[in-house]
Amino acid sequence: MAAARTETPAARTLELDVPDWPAHRPGQHVDVRLTAEDGYTAQRSYSVASTPGTGRLELTVQRIDDGEVSPYLVDVAQPGDAFEVRGPVGGYFVWDDADPAPVLLVAGGSGIVPLMSMIRARSAAGLRVPFRLVYSTRSPDITIYADELRRRQRDDRGLDLAYAYTRGVPPGWRRPPGRLDGALLREAGWPADLGPACFVCGPTGFVEAAANLLVDQDHPADRIKTERFGPSGGGAA
């Protein structure tokens, strides 16, 4: 671990120097393995945040309060510490930068991380593929990458950005706090007849709802790639 940046009170970006790291594709994840002194190990998957093929491998990790690995990565790990990473993993939830289709990114909370890798990859490659990001987040103060997205909204041509704040909105914000709904998705996304590639990432309940809204708006299921994390919303079954 070479360095770390605090993103929000609950999320931190770890910059890793990984010898012989192969370039990942935007959207892929890695497996992190921590080993305690008694040999006990714990593994979890984290999405890669950084641009493929440049600089350090970056992971942005959100603390899960009763978690085992994320509290260590967010609160304990320091530059100079070492742990094992394996990857890149996953060949489906990836953006193909040779695909000229417009892209719709739908993020719920820390689900922004793999989508940010796509936004950064597009920018680093100087591509003009039209991107739209619809980002559901609780409130401005705990929004991961808020500053960078503000800058990119100004500087990255062809990147549009809309927020759905679910609890607290910025001063003067016109839309009251609330969940992402069909109207906002219709307004800030792409119509299905443009054939966009859709990527939806976030907690299970959010992804279920957002993917269903996209299906309702006639996006074909095979153009909606999803990545879900956490338990199901509706109890154990």
């Binding site: 299970t204 279920e208 269903n212 790639k225 999803t226 338990p231 154990a236 079954a237």
Partner: peptide
Amino acid sequence: DFPVLSAGPT
């Protein structure tokens, strides 16, 4: 819990 992993919409 019973996490959900699916590649696309339900």
